[in-house]
Simulated assay, not measured.
Amino acid sequence: MTPDIRLVDAFAADLDEHHELHLAVSRADYPNVAPPTRETVLARLRDPDVDLGERLFWTARVDGRLAGAFAAQLPVDGNEHLSMIRLVVHPELRRRGIGTQLLRTAASVLRQRGRLIAEVSRVESNSPGARFAAALGFRTVNTSVFQLLEFAEVDPAVWDVSPPAGYRLVRWIGRAPDHLVESYARARRAIGDAPPGESAFRTPDWTVARVRRLEAAYLEHGIERRVVAAVADDQVVGLTELDLQPLRPDLAAQRDTAVLAAHRGHGLGQAMKASMLRWITADKPDVQRVWTSTAVANQYMADVNHRLGFATVRRYSVVNRELAGL
């Protein structure tokens, strides 16, 4: 069986057949997890992770039927060696070499683009995907937990957390204020202190130019990026970020939280996240839940999330390998 593999425009993809593919994968691999809705699949097709740069998208067809899909994103600003990938193959068509051919076809293009490593950020332990990756030489380089907060199940009183003396919280949607953007970019680099394991992803070179470029990209994709920042002496010393996507009005994504080393130990992370949750519930009543992920090694932040009402729902691995040899 030789699949027809093509590089395509994900924005023009047929939603019905991609939804059927992801439903089949979900039912076979994750029977205890709610299957993806059409809106979830549409968001995967139309809303790539802006922070991870350009996206390339391949499909594999067998006798005209969608058999699999492969996405790769090409981060920049210090990560030009890396490609972040995602691969799915229909359960009925597995063990026929389709996934391997998709990976090898994409790897050839990625190498031509100067990428050296392929990394998958979410692989469920003991899943078919984990076994497939291991068979192809991918190794586990980090482990994270997926955490979920259901607003209906949490007492809002746990978010009554004030910033410590000497700090104030500033918030914005979209564009960082001009007088704070430089210190915001500096504070953004503090995420690099979180334990990365052996992931090939490096903390980006956060500059004002990168901040402004990503802000424009969020706007272009209709993503509402909210920021709560901790400020001392008119300088941003900590931040937490949350995304709202138009295709998933019920779900918010809690993104990075970072505090400069000199300002840690005062509870700023919890105060900023609590402020964000109060803000969202006050003016976004359609949002029902918030998800986030945290490295297992970052137990401090996982505990902060638990105190705010997040529950850990599953663990997953980050795996990677060199593109050479694929």
Rank of each mutant, 00 (worst) to 15 (best):
G174C: 10
L214W: 15
E182H: 09
A216K: 05
R171W: 08
S199N: 01
G174F: 07
L214D: 14
G197D: 05
T207G: 02
R186A: 10
G174Y: 08
R202D: 06
R171L: 09
R171P: 02
R189S: 15
L214E: 11
G174P: 08
A187S: 13
L214I: 14
T207I: 01
R202A: 12
S199F: 01
I191R: 11
I173N: 10
V170C: 06
R189M: 12
P196W: 03
L169Y: 02
R202L: 13
A217L: 14
E215G: 08
V211W: 00
G192W: 02
P196A: 06
L180Q: 10
E215H: 07
I173M: 08
R171Y: 03
R186I: 02
S199P: 05
V211A: 00
D193P: 06
E182L: 01
A217I: 03
D205E: 15
A217W: 03
T207S: 06
R175H: 04
P196E: 03
R175M: 06
T203D: 08
V170Y: 01
G192T: 04
V211K: 02
W172N: 11
L180P: 08
G192R: 06
P204W: 03
Y184V: 04
R171M: 11
I173G: 05
R168W: 03
R168A: 03
Y184R: 10
W206P: 07
P196V: 06
P196M: 04
D178V: 09
R168S: 05
A217V: 02
S199A: 07
I191D: 03
V211T: 03
T203L: 03
D178L: 10
F201P: 12
I173A: 14
V170P: 01
G197N: 05
V181G: 04
I191T: 12
L180D: 07
E182D: 13
I173C: 11
T203F: 02
A190D: 09
E215P: 07
D205C: 06
Y218Q: 03
L169W: 00
T203H: 05
P196Q: 04
E215R: 06
W206Q: 05
P195I: 11
I173L: 10
H179P: 14
P195Q: 09
E215Y: 07
L180S: 13
V211F: 00
W206K: 01
T207A: 00
W172D: 12
E198V: 09
D205K: 07
R171T: 10
F201R: 14
T203Y: 04
S183V: 00
S199Y: 00
E198D: 15
Y184H: 11
A176M: 10
R168E: 06
A200K: 05
A185P: 09
R212L: 07
A185F: 01
R188Q: 15
V170A: 04
D193Y: 09
G197C: 04
G197I: 04
V170T: 11
E215N: 09
A190K: 08
D205G: 13
R189D: 13
P195R: 06
R189Q: 15
I173H: 11
V208W: 02
T207Q: 00
P195M: 12
W206G: 02
A187D: 05
E215L: 11
I173Y: 00
Y218D: 05
P177I: 07
S183A: 01
P196C: 05
R210G: 00
E198K: 12
E215C: 08
S199G: 07
